[in-house]
Design a binder for these strands. Structure first.
Lengths: 208, 208
DNA sequence: TCCCTTCTGTGATAAATGTTACTGTAGATT
DNA sequence: AATCTACAGTAACATTTATCACAGAAGGGA
C-alpha cells in the first residue's frame, strides 16, 4: 500500500489534498518508461507518490547525463515551469523504479497557485530546491575532476535510497557521468584501495 | 536617460508599474560591485533597468564560472526563488556595466504574486527561461569540448551585446570558462586560422 | 556441466587540457 | 624616447581523460 497524499505532502492543506484527489489523474508506470522526452510539449505536472524517476539531459551520442531523481513527495520542477507556458521540455524523464503519480493538468496547476497558499509555497519551494540541485551539478562538472564527481555521485545515490549499497553496473554509472566504463572501473578500484568502497558485481558498498 | 519601466517590462499592468514605482527602491551600482555573494541571505528581488550584471558560480580557486547575464527588462531568478524563502544565495552577482535597478523587498515580491497577474507571469517566465539557460550551460560543460564551448561563449556574448566584437581579454574569458589563459589563446588562434574570428588586443571580432 | 552473455580489470596508447616558462608587442606613464 | 605593464603567442611538458584491445570472472540458461 502506498502512502497517502497527506503523509507524502504534509504541507498541503486539507482542501488542496481533497482537490488533488478529486481532479488529479492517478497513474502507474513501469520501470524503463520514458515519461518525457526532449522537445515534447508538456501537458501535466507530475506529483510522485511511489517509485523513482530519473531526470536527465540527453547527449547527442545517447549519453544520459543525470540531473537529479524525483521521489515520493516531490514534483517535477521542469514540468511545472514549462507547463505554466505550455512549453517544450528540455529534458528527459525516465522511470527507474515503478512509480505511481498524480497528473495535474496545466490549467489546474496554474489556477491553484492563486487559490491554495500551500500549493503556491510547494511550487516555489520545488523550483528553489531543484535550481540549487542543478547549481550543484554545474559546480561538480565545472570545478571537479572525475574522481571527485564519482564520489559525489555515489554519495548522492546512497543518500537517495537510504542505504549504503549502490546497485548499478560501472557502465550505468559511466553513462550518467558522461564518461567511459573503463574510467569508472579504474577510479572505483582506486577508491577500493583507499578503503572507501567495497566492490562486488553490480553492487558498490560505501564504507565511509 | 534610461528607459521607463513601462518600456522595459511591457507585459506589466499599469497598476503594477505604478506599484513598483511607488514601493520599489531605485538604486545605482558601479561596474565591479558585487551585489550578491555565495552564502549571503537575500532580502530583495532585483529588476534591472540599465546596465549588465553577471551571475556566476565561484570556484574554490577563485574561478568565476559564468552562468548568465542579467540585462535591462530582466530580473534575477535566483533572488526571486531564494527571496520567497529568505534563503541563502548559492551564486555570485557582479556588476559588469554600471547598472540601475529597482529593489523589491521580499514581502512585496510574494504579495504581488497574488495581486498582480502580470507579476505572477513574469516571475514564472523568469524562472523558466533561467532554468533553461542553466540547462544549456550543463549541456555545454557535460557534452562539449573546450573549443565548442569557447565558440558558444563568444556567440552568446555578441548576441547579448548585439555587436560582433567581444571586448574581453583572453584571461577574462578563461576565468569564465574555468580554464587557463593559454588554452583560450591557443583555441582562439585556431579559430582565427579557420577564419571564424579576427583577433586584436582586448577585442575579438566574430566573422561568421 | 557447458556455453553464453554481461560485467569487471587492466595495459597500451591517443587526445585534450592544464602548467611552466619564456618571448614579444601595444599602449600607458614618465 | 625610455620604461613599465598588461596582454598575447607559443613551445615543452605533465596530467587527466578517452579509446582500443583483450582477458578473466560471475551468473543464467540449455
Amino acid at each position: 500500500m502506498q502512502h497517502s497524499l497527506k503523509t507524502l505532502f504534509p504541507n498541503f492543506s486539507a482542501e488542496l489534498i481533497a482537490t488533488i484527489e478529486e481532479k488529479g489523474n492517478a497513474q502507474d508506470f513501469k520501470a524503463g518508461t520514458v515519461l518525457m522526452r526532449t522537445g515534447q510539449y508538456i501537458k501535466n505536472t507530475v506529483l510522485i507518490t511511489k517509485g523513482k524517476i530519473k531526470i536527465y539531459r540527453e547527449g547527442e551520442d545517447g549519453g544520459e547525463f543525470l540531473m537529479y531523481y524525483l521521489q515520493p513527495g516531490q514534483a517535477c520542477a521542469i514540468s511545472m515551469i514549462c507547463t505554466a507556458k505550455s512549453e517544450k521540455s528540455q529534458i528527459m524523464a525516465k522511470v527507474v523504479e515503478d512509480v505511481s503519480v498524480m497528473m495535474i493538468p496545466l490549467q489546474l496547476m496554474d489556477k491553484w497557485m492563486m487559490e491554495h497558499r500551500s500549493w503556491y509555497e510547494f511550487v516555489i519551494e520545488t523550483y528553489r530546491s531543484r535550481f540549487e540541485e542543478i547549481l550543484e551539478v554545474v559546480d561538480n562538472i565545472a570545478f571537479r575532476s572525475m574522481d571527485e564527481r564519482l564520489e559525489f555521485y555515489l554519495k548522492r545515490h546512497s543518500d537517495s535510497c537510504g542505504c549504503s549499497e549502490v546497485k548499478l553496473s560501472h557502465q550505468e554509472i559511466a553513462t550518467e557521468l558522461n564518461t567511459s566504463r573503463e574510467v569508472v572501473s579504474r577510479l572505483l578500484k582506486k577508491m577500493e584501495q583507499r578503503g572507501l568502497v567495497k566492490l562486488n558485481r553490480n553492487q558498490i558498498e560505501l564504507l565511509k
